[in-house]
Simulated scan of single mutants.
Amino acid sequence: MGNDTKTDDCPIRPALDLRPFASALHHIEQGEPEKVDPVDVASELREREASELPPELLGWLCDYLEGSIETRGRKGESPLERRVIGLHAAHSYDAIRKAQNGDPDALPEAVNIWQSWASETEDSYSPSEAAWMVVSCMFYGQPGSHKKLRNLAGAARSPIGKSARK
């Protein structure tokens, strides 16, 4: 037997050689999955044919990674859309907070909106959270997305290219 790579009639070889995937693995380990090129991964999978995957699944996975399979549902928001929504949400939030605080410079529309919601939110939530819930209702018709809007607003208010957290 010696240093042979086979035993009797069963060759020993890994199901998948990971060296071609080193770049993708590096990006994933560094917390940068958006830098993984799915077309390169698909190319490597097609070339190396992962023996543990059924051929139909391998073909579908590669087609999906290459973008030739339509997925259902709404496409995600682009970075520009997220920034615009975040800035709009931040300005709406600021207007509602002015109305909450009785600021004489508050927009009349914000005062009307806040007055219609005040009785439902004042006792149960902090003023800030209540304002975000109102903004969520303005944007999405329900208060359940207020944390998403708060995060989008925080990201939009931070300088471009900088993380809101340090």
Rank of each mutant, 00 (worst) to 15 (best):
P11Q: 02
R19P: 00
Y64D: 05
E49L: 03
V111A: 12
R48F: 06
K147W: 00
Q30P: 02
E129C: 06
A24K: 05
T71R: 08
N101Q: 15
E66Q: 15
I28L: 10
S158L: 01
S116P: 00
L65G: 07
R150T: 00
Q30C: 03
V39F: 11
Q142D: 09
T7F: 08
D94P: 02
D17I: 09
Q30I: 08
V36S: 11
L152W: 06
E47F: 09
T7Y: 10
G31P: 01
D94H: 12
A50V: 01
N3A: 07
R19A: 05
A131K: 04
R83M: 09
T7H: 15
E56F: 04
A110Y: 01
E120H: 04
E52N: 06
A22L: 06
E129R: 09
A155L: 14
S23C: 02
L16V: 08
E122M: 11
A164P: 14
S51A: 02
Q100D: 08
G102R: 01
A106P: 03
A15E: 07
D63W: 02
N151A: 12
T121V: 08
L107D: 11
G144T: 00
E29C: 15
G73A: 03
S51E: 03
C10Q: 12
A15P: 00
R82I: 11
G73E: 00
L61V: 15
L65E: 01
H91K: 13
T121I: 07
T121L: 15
P38S: 08
D37T: 11
V84P: 04
G73I: 07
R74V: 07
K148L: 03
E109R: 07
Y125K: 04
G73K: 03
N151F: 02
P38V: 14
D105I: 03
R83H: 09
G67P: 05
Y93D: 04
E52S: 12
W117R: 15
L53Y: 08
A22Y: 09
F139Y: 10
T7A: 05
L45M: 12
Q115H: 14
G144K: 01
D103Y: 05
